[in-house]
Nucleic acid binder design. Structure first.
Length: 276
DNA sequence: GTGTTTGTTATCAA
DNA sequence: CTTGATAACAAACA
């Protein structure tokens, strides 16, 4: 599932290759209404789990932004002209390719999305600002201080941690994987009610969120299912997962079997011994 | 056929 | 305003 570390990885990899490229062709049944041909990409950014391509505006015109959300199964795979597919990486296009960008130098970007939840849309600066303001604090930005986390928690005293951390309007970018991993790293159970957290636990949670997201980004994300990097290769974080996807396996710290339950409608994993 | 997988939004209820 | 529950979107897999 593409969450902050996965989208950040794609942002960094695409920021290396896309700026300056001009869209020569755009093929898509689902997003055929988008007018992208002739537009030049000037910048690649990320906010929460959204990728943002800044489209260079002609003189006298306001810039537009192409937003991409991968949702559950989206992939963005970039290929240079005549680039060979490395063994094991998905061949393009696949039957799940929903959009193909062809740039004027012959390179291509494929948007694959098995479950079709992902989307592309073009917005102006005002709409972009609206989306930004409706989205929570970036956990890897300097704005995510301990007092800020305390303040957000205080506004939602009755929620459990799982629901709180999944809410993109509060802290942006965590999904099912990194919520469970952050709770483990903070030694706190995901079903704990926010109000019950001690000052020390909030401090540990703050540090845990930052360190988990940083480490996962360093390893280019978690390829548990569909997610791949911009070159089609998998991210390397799966061996570092402590609880997500490890139900009934032994805790790496204490050997107690990891428990999997349903919480807030989601599969939720935790160690009943390490987390209180 | 049943249940499970999950990001996000909408909707209804308290 | 907060919150909780549920459905919807869609496709694959066990």
């Amino acid at each position: 599932m593409p969450e902050l570390p996965e989208v950040e990885t794609l942002k960094r990899e695409l920021a290396h290759v896309l700026p300056g490229k001009k869209i020569a062709a755009f093929e898509s049944a689902k997003f055929a209404h988008l007018n992208l041909v002739g537009k030049k990409i000037s910048k690649v950014e990320r906010r929460a789990k959204i990728l943002i391509f800044k489209l260079q505006a002609p003189p006298s015109k306001l810039p537009a932004f192409l937003l991409i959300h991968l949702k559950l199964t989206g992939q963005l795979i970039f290929k240079n002209k005549n680039q060979l597919i490395i063994g094991g990486h998905p061949a393009d296009p696949t039957k799940h390719t929903r959009a193909i960008f062809t740039f004027s130098d012959g390179s291509q970007l494929f948007f694959n999305d098995l479950r079709k939840f992902g989307w592309l849309k073009v917005v102006g600066g005002a709409d972009l600002a609206k989306i930004f303001s409706a989205t929570g604090v970036e956990p890897l930005s300097p704005a995510f201080t301990l007092p800020v986390l305390r303040k957000i928690l205080a506004r939602h005293p009755k929620r459990n941690l799982k629901q709180f951390l999944l809410d993109q309007t509060l802290v942006a970018g965590l999904g099912n994987i990194y919520v469970d991993e952050s709770c483990f790293a903070a030694s706190v159970l995901p079903m704990r009610i926010v109000k019950s957290l001690t000052a020390n636990e909030i401090e540990k949670l703050h540090r845990a969120i930052i360190s988990v997201l940083k480490l996962a980004t360093k390893h280019k994300g978690t390829s548990a299912r569909n997610y791949v990097r911009a070159d089609g290769s998998p991210g390397g974080f799966v061996p570092y997962l402590n609880v997500y996807g490890r139900g009934r396996q032994k805790c790496k710290v204490c050997q107690t079997p990891i428990v999997k339950i349903k919480l807030a409608g989601r599969g939720t994993h935790y160690c009943p011994h390490c987390q209180k």
